[in-house]
């Protein structure tokens, strides 16, 4: 077998060049994979645009397409309110968490004070604790603070993240210390160095972290499920789950609701794809 010619080395690096038949087979396999991955989205969109009866009889034609399901969904479920709740909570947590983590990461990485490394090790150790362990006490804490069923319950616990602190600390340690020293010579305070030297230098990692947090908070389900009770406080995933409980097999409405719920995050994903992927690889490599 002429195996050596199957992959002649190319100058640019990793991707190997395949022969034409192998390339064709690969394209077909990848296309099939895409069909499998996209089918649920396609079904969602299709059913959301059809009357339920037409879908049940599998009548697929252009003439049955309608936007009525969307009108009906917005009529029976306050999706507008869910949107506002989700946007408010997600934006607050993302900005707050990034700032708080950045401040702490700056101190952990670049200031010298007693107990710094010990405290950081304690932070790291808590990464092992699974979410279900803190779920119940956090619910009790929120309740005793009088925050049950409020925005505070959705936002405040999310403001603190060991993961974000860790990721930023790793990055900040890589920035040359001479920059701080030079700024300090010029009489800059630590706060000023953080804001005017470190933060501007860490734009990409902050953006990656922010979009990553945004995605996580937007899709969060278990925590809101525990601390939210009233309909007007629901976020999108919560509202959607309640919608399923209410309209078990009204597939046309459920699919319209799902499309409404997914649209913002999918648009953000498609526009900012490279940041999502960067976030994964960044964390996958342990923050390096």
């Amino acid at each position: 077998m002429a195996t050596t010619s199957l992959a002649t080395s190319n100058a640019t690096g990793s991707p190997t060049r395949l022969r034409a038949p192998a390339r064709l087979a690969l394209q077909i396999a990848l296309l099939l994979g895409s069909v499998l991955m996209l089918a649920p989205f396609a079904l969602m969109l299709l059913v959301s645009l059809m009357p339920l009866s037409a879908f049940m009889k599998r009548e697929f034609s252009l003439s049955v397409l309608t936007l009525n399901n969307y009108v009906e969904t917005f009529r029976v479920v306050p999706f507008g309110r869910y949107y506002l709740n989700s946007i408010f909570v997600t934006v607050s947590v993302t900005i707050g968490q990034t700032l708080i983590a950045s401040l702490a990461a700056y101190a952990f990485a670049r200031l010298r004070f007693r107990g710094r490394d010990g405290l950081f090790m304690v932070y790291l150790a808590t990464l092992m604790i699974p979410f279900p362990v803190t779920l119940i006490p956090n619910f009790l804490i929120i309740k005793s603070l009088g925050w049950f069923d409020t925005y505070l319950a959705l936002i405040v616990p999310g403001l603190f993240s060991v993961f974000a602190t860790f990721l930023l600390r790793q990055y900040y340690r890589g920035i040359p210390l001479d920059l701080d020293e030079a700024a300090r010579m010029d009489g800059a305070s630590s706060l000023r160095i953080w804001w005017q030297v470190i933060v501007p230098l860490s734009g990409p990692v902050l953006a990656t972290l922010a979009i990553f947090t945004f995605q996580g908070v937007w899709n969060e389900f278990l925590w809101p499920l525990v601390v939210i009770n009233s309909e007007s406080m629901r976020t999108i995933p919560l509202g959607l789950a309640a919608f399923v409980g209410q309209f078990k097999t009204a597939w046309n409405l459920l699919m319209a609701g799902s499309v409404i719920a997914l649209l913002p995050i999918l648009i953000i994903y498609i526009l900012g794809q490279k940041w999502f992927v960067k976030g994964i690889t960044l964390s996958g490599m342990g923050g390096r």
Binding site: I236, P237, L240, V244, S258, L266
Partner: peptide, 18 residues
């Protein structure tokens, strides 16, 4: 291939119910 990863799980679960 990465699109389902960013999808809200609740919406994914509903579609798979159907």
């Amino acid at each position: 291939y990465f699109m389902p990863v960013v999808t809200t799980i609740v919406a994914g679960a509903i579609v798979f119910r159907l």
